[in-house]
């Protein structure tokens, strides 16, 4: 059994991670920390975990790291790096924050803040198995990708050879769980539900990951909050001359994803559900991708959908854990989502 500790287990990502870990056949959750809820039962904060995670939240203590094989960090951006600095080399780490996703300290500083251990950035592997599987297996520090970044990168990855002279414009629609469990005015149900709100017209932090991982620069992104709890839907427009035919695009997607368990090409000719849909992926570790070629407008449109808390966070972290420990990659993750 893999013994794991979870630092920062009271948020939505931590809760989803604990839910998935609790049913994983090769994992024992040894401790879960929360500064805010120390001493409380984990199931008092995550009631869905009653009878599955019967331990209390503790304070984070460095010496507790000795009791586990793997530490998950489910902390806000800029908090994780303090702990990684402290424990790197002593235990395997999967960091679900953005602190180790970018290779360049100056890019990190531009989008977040000054990095406290930039010398460790080169050891972190960007935890997107569909791209970095072999490096993940050998790594002891995984930077788990962002939810939007995962949707975008998986949507564009088969096309990277085409993108150099193209303009890429991304439209993101995201559910409320992506903004975390801390209350704010914009997250009150009355104000968040039944609306579409542009929350980041430009300079979204996840764009830095997209640019770095795909090696592209002509890319922009606008992100909208929509009235659903879970899910990320990316509509990606690629403009330029010489857009290939749909059959050629099929070939590119097949070359990358035919063997991938968690990426499904959803590109059927007729509706309904002929293209990715949030309904097809929520509560699962799948990312569905599809596309259309709009020849009249020199435009390729890519659609990518995933559950922000699973393939966009906790599920992907477990996929990474499985790889790091030599387990079947889909262990504990092989189930469909919920349609309704």
């Amino acid at each position: 059994m893999i013994k794991v500790g979870v630092v920062g287990g009271s948020g939505y990502t931590g809760g989803e991670l604990l839910r998935l870990l609790s049913i994983h056949p090769e994992v024992e959750v040894v401790w879960v920390t929360s500064r805010r809820f120390v001493g409380k039962n984990v199931s008092d904060i995550h009631p869905n975990l009653r009878r599955f995670i019967d331990i209390k939240f503790t304070n984070y203590k460095k010496e507790n790291v000795d009791s586990v094989d793997l530490v998950f960090l489910c902390l806000p951006h800029t908090k994780s790096m303090e702990i990684v600095k402290d424990i790197y080399g002593e235990v395997k780490i999967i960091d679900l924050s953005a602190d180790f996703r970018l290779k360049s300290p100056s890019t990190y500083e531009k989008y977040y803040t000054k990095h406290v251990c930039p010398e460790l950035l080169k050891y972190a592997v960007y935890g997107l198995p569909e791209i970095n599987r072999e490096d993940i297996r050998k790594s002891s520090l995984i930077a788990n990708p962002g939810c939007n970044s995962t949707a975008i990168i998986l949507g564009l990855y088969p096309l990277t050879s085409l993108l150099e002279d193209k303009i890429v414009t991304i439209d993101i629609k995201e559910g409320s769980s992506a903004s975390g469990r801390s209350p704010s005015i914009s997250n009150i149900h009355a104000e968040r539900s039944h609306t579409v709100r542009i929350y980041k017209p430009m300079n979204h932090r996840h764009l830095a990951e997209v640019k770095e991982v795909l090696g592209i620069s002509n890319v922009s992104m606008s992100a909208h909050a929509v009235g659903m709890t879970r899910g990320v839907f990316a509509t990606i427009y690629v403009f330029g001359d010489n857009i290939p035919s749909e059959k050629e695009i099929w070939k590119l997607y097949r070359s990358k994803y035919t063997e991938e368990k968690f990426v499904r090409i959803v590109n059927r000719k007729y509706p309904p559900y002929n293209l990715p849909d949030i309904k097809g992926v929520v509560y699962s570790n799948f990312c569905d991708v599809g596309f259309r070629v709009d020849k009249d407008n020199n435009r390729l449109i890519i659609f990518s959908a995933l559950d922000n808390l699973i393939k966009g966070a906790a599920g992907q972290a477990i996929q990474n854990m499985n790889l790091m420990f030599g387990l079947e990659e889909s262990m504990g993750l092989w189930y469909p989502g919920f349609l309704v």
Partner: peptide, 27 residues
């Protein structure tokens, strides 16, 4: 002809028969 996937048929089809591509769903 839509997506380039292989379509496997048990028998030779007849003219005007409709077949479906299992990959892209095209009729």
């Amino acid at each position: 002809p839509e997506c380039g996937a292989e379509i496997i048929l048990e028998d030779k089809p007849v003219e005007n028969e409709i077949v479906e591509c299992s990959e892209c769903g095209a009729q």
